[in-house]
Amino acid sequence: MTQTFTENDLLRYAYGETSSTENVEIEKSLLCDDLLQETYNQLVATLAELDKCAIKPSDSVVQRILDYSKSSNLPSVLK
């Protein structure tokens, strides 16, 4: 008999927080439960969208950070 998994379990699985034993069971359930598979697909699709909306700061702020580090008078620790 396959175990019933909740959406919370799927979330933990999608983020790699489930144990290897849970992984085997979840993967088994995904293969034979269309509804669970559909829920998981939606979850993964939404997470993929979140990945894509990461943004980069301007080059100027990055340069200011690097300049600050170079000009910092604090002594390097392990010289």
């Binding site: 909306c53 990461a54 943004i55 980069k56 700061p57 990055v62 950070i65 690097l66 580090s69 170079k70 390097s76 620790v77 392990l78 010289k79």
Partner: peptide, 27 residues
């Protein structure tokens, strides 16, 4: 560790590697 020894290039790599994640989190 390299940055602690004064390697500014190592720090530049850390900034390049993580700038997007840090900026997105704050934004």
């Amino acid at each position: 560790s390299l940055y602690m020894k004064g390697d500014e290039e190592a720090f530049a790599q850390l900034v390049e590697k993580h700038k997007s994640r840090v900026f997105t989190t704050i934004y």
